[in-house]
C-alpha cells in the first residue's frame, strides 16, 4: 500500500536578479491518499492541479516539503533506494529512453540498472517488446522511432523491474487507439495480478473503465473521492436527452413542457425540430411516451448521462464548462 499523509510540496518562486521573489507555489497542499495493491486508483484534476508533482514525490524524484509518504511502510525519504526497486513510473510524452540505443539495448540497460537477474532479463525483454508491439523494431535506434514508438518503449521500460506499484502519468498520451486499448488491457491485467496502479489521465473514459477508486484534486487539495459512478451521481449533474422529430407537430411542445424539465427547442441540419431536455433524472422514457401521445413521429432519441468529466469540471468550480454541454 502506498499511503500519503498530509502531503505538501511547494516550489520556491523563481528568483529574479534585483527583484524580490514572488510567493512559493503550493503544487500539492495537504493530500492524503492511499493506493492499494491489486487495484487501479485514479488521480484526476485539471491542468496544474498537482497530479504530476504528486506522482514525482511518490516516485522519489522529488522530496515532500512536509507530510509523509510510505510505500509498504517504508518512508520515501529514508528508504528511497529500496522503494525504487518496487515502483516504476511511466509518463506520457517524455523522453525517458536513450535515443542512440536500440529499443532492445534500452531495455537491457535499464534491466541492469534495476538488477534484474540475467536469467530472467532476456525473456522479460522479449515479452515486453511483444507486449508493446516493438518486436520488429527492437533492433532499430530509438532516434528513428516515431513518437508513439518511443512512448511504447517508455512503457516497456516502466515494466522492466516488474514493479509492485506502477505510477502512470498520462501514459496513453500520443498513442494510437489500438495501442492505447492494449495498454488499458495490460494495466487491468497487472492490477488483477496484484500490482497497485496509480493512473492520471485526461482521457476520462480510460479512468471510468479502469479505476475502482478516484481522487479528484484541485490546486493541490483533495476535492472529492469515490468510485467514478458515485462521483458522477454525487455531483447531481443533469442527464441530457435529445429528441428529433420527423416534422413539426404543434401539440408536442406543450406535451414536452408538461414534463416540467428545463428544455430547449431547435432544428437539426435537415431543418427537423429538436428538443434538448436537462433533468437530474433520466427522462427519456417519459419524453418519448409524451411525444408519441401528442402525435409526434420520433426520428432519433439520444440519452447522455453525466460523465466523470462533467463531474470534475463541476468540482473544480468551472460551471460554465458544464453548462456548455
Amino acid at each position: 500500500m502506498i499511503v500519503t499523509h498530509e502531503l505538501r510540496k511547494s516550489f520556491p518562486a523563481q528568483r529574479k536578479l534585483f527583484r524580490p521573489a514572488g510567493p512559493a507555489t503550493d503544487a500539492v497542499d495537504g493530500l492524503s491518499l492511499s493506493i492499494p495493491p491489486g487495484a487501479v486508483t485514479g488521480l484526476l484534476g485539471l491542468n496544474g492541479a498537482g497530479k504530476t508533482t504528486t506522482i514525482k514525490v511518490l516516485a522519489t524524484l522529488l522530496r515532500p516539503t512536509s507530510g509523509s509518504v510510505t510505500v509498504d511502510g517504508l518512508d520515501v525519504v529514508d528508504h528511497a533506494r529500496e522503494i525504487r526497486r518496487r515502483i516504476n513510473l511511466i509518463a506520457g510524452g517524455e523522453r525517458m529512453v536513450y535515443a542512440r540505443l536500440t529499443g532492445r539495448e534500452n531495455l537491457w540497460y535499464f534491466g541492469q540498472l534495476y538488477d534484474v537477474p540475467r536469467a530472467v532479463l532476456g525473456t522479460r525483454i522479449d515479452e515486453l517488446l511483444e507486449l508493446v508491439g516493438l518486436t520488429d523494431a527492437a533492433g532499430t535506434l530509438v532516434e528513428r522511432y516515431s513518437r508513439g514508438m518511443r512512448q511504447r518503449l517508455s512503457i516497456a521500460r516502466g515494466l522492466i523491474n516488474a514493479p509492485a506499484y506502477l505510477l502512470l502519468d498520462e501514459p496513453t498520451l500520443g498513442l494510437d487507439a489500438p495501442i492505447a486499448r492494449d495498454l488499458r488491457a495490460v494495466v487491468a491485467n497487472l492490477a488483477r495480478d496484484g500490482v497497485g496502479v496509480l493512473l492520471t489521465s485526461h482521457y476520462l473514459a480510460e479512468v471510468e473503465q479502469l479505476c475502482g477508486h478516484v481522487y479528484v484534486v484541485d490546486h493541490g487539495r483533495l476535492v472529492a473521492e469515490g468510485s467514478p459512478t458515485a462521483l458522477t451521481a454525487g455531483t447531481r449533474l443533469p442527464h441530457t436527452v435529445e429528441l428529433t422529430l420527423a416534422e413539426h407537430a404543434p401539440a408536442v411542445s406543450a406535451a414536452v413542457a408538461a414534463l416540467g424539465a428545463e428544455f430547449e427547442v431547435g432544428v437539426d441540419t435537415e431543418e427537423r425540430p429538436t428538443f434538448l431536455l436537462r433533468s437530474p433524472e433520466d427522462l427519456a422514457g417519459e419524453l418519448a411516451t409524451a411525444v408519441v401521445r401528442a402525435g409526434g413521429a420520433i426520428v432519433r432519441l439520444e440519452v447522455n448521462p453525466p460523465t466523470l468529466e462533467d463531474a470534475i469540471l463541476a468540482m473544480a468550480g468551472t460551471p460554465t464548462s458544464v453548462a456548455a454541454r
Partner: peptide
C-alpha cells in the same frame, strides 16, 4: 539534456 536523468534517478542503481 537528453531527458534520461529522471529514468536514471528513478532506478535503484
Amino acid at each position: 539534456r537528453e531527458g534520461t536523468l529522471e529514468s536514471q534517478v528513478l532506478a535503484p542503481a
